[in-house]
Design a protein around this nucleic acid. Structure first.
Lengths: 138, 138
DNA sequence: TCTTGAACCTCTAGTCACTAGAGATACTAC
DNA sequence: GTAGTATCTCTAGTGACTAGAGGTTCAAGA
């Protein structure tokens, strides 16, 4: 049996976060010692690892909750789980696209100004004030 | 003079958000009508456009606040503003890098499972449960 | 001038996924 | 037995808004 601190060290999820997941219903409430401290078994640890991994991949707690529910329904889990992962993939791709545009824009803005010397016209500030100077939509 | 609704339509910033920016000190409190409604001048609108544009580029309200302060100090604004923009650029680049790794990972996960048919072993769920299946760090 | 309906006001509370801190209790190693 | 660490619950805070209640003001038409 693992204490919450053991779990935290092994999964690298902070203690208050573990308690938060329990409160949110992602982790089921574990056994307690006589003194009311949480004691987890291997299943609890696996569940937490699953959550951690999914969070690292950017799944929302809501999506993770769905994925966990699906684990109890092997008959229909595969299609639904793939849908969730695919949706997340589209989100990530859209985000990358947007960030690439921003990168170009920021690069242009911060390169426009040489940064030293006294100038009363700062290109960074001017670019932010005037959207017309942008070459992209965002 | 513009009402808060005019400002909202022209800048595409929602009304509660405009009030929020005022509360946070990013926008100075505008004049009011006798009936206590906000009335903005052109300067107020420009300021809000600046904030909107910077937010679209992903600057935090704190960073925007610094940029606004710099507008009052043309002597040292250029270097400092460039620093802020450059820092934001690094953030964006780091984020793109991380998202690219996630994209690969999610692509692998969601492709692994054909999605139809009844299988008691779902590759998506298995991948999330077992980090060892991953080919990258994240 | 009056009325109607849209726009505006303030205030509180909720969102997401945690994080921080207070103050009290329990466990563990010596 | 005791010291020191780990844990408990509870409340409140983060960032950047968003939603809703309940009330007031404005602008246009009759």
């Amino acid at each position: 049996m693992f204490s919450i601190g053991d779990l935290s060290k092994r999964t690298k999820v902070k203690i208050p976060t573990i308690r938060y997941y329990e409160e949110m219903g992602l982790l089921s409430a574990p056994e307690r010692t006589e003194g009311n401290q949480r004691r987890y078994d291997a299943a609890g640890m696996e569940r937490l690892s699953f959550i951690k991994h999914a969070r690292d991949l950017g799944f929302s707690l809501e999506a993770i909750s769905e994925l966990i529910d699906l684990q109890g329904h092997p008959d229909r889990s595969c299609k639904a789980a793939t849908d969730i992962a695919t949706a997340r993939l589209s989100e990530v791709r859209a985000k990358i696209k947007r960030l690439r545009a921003l990168e170009k824009e920021l690069n242009r803005i911060s390169k426009g100004c040489n940064g030293d010397g006294v100038s009363e016209h700062c290109y960074v500030l001017a670019s932010l004030a005037d959207h017309e100077l942008c070459r992209h939509e965002h």
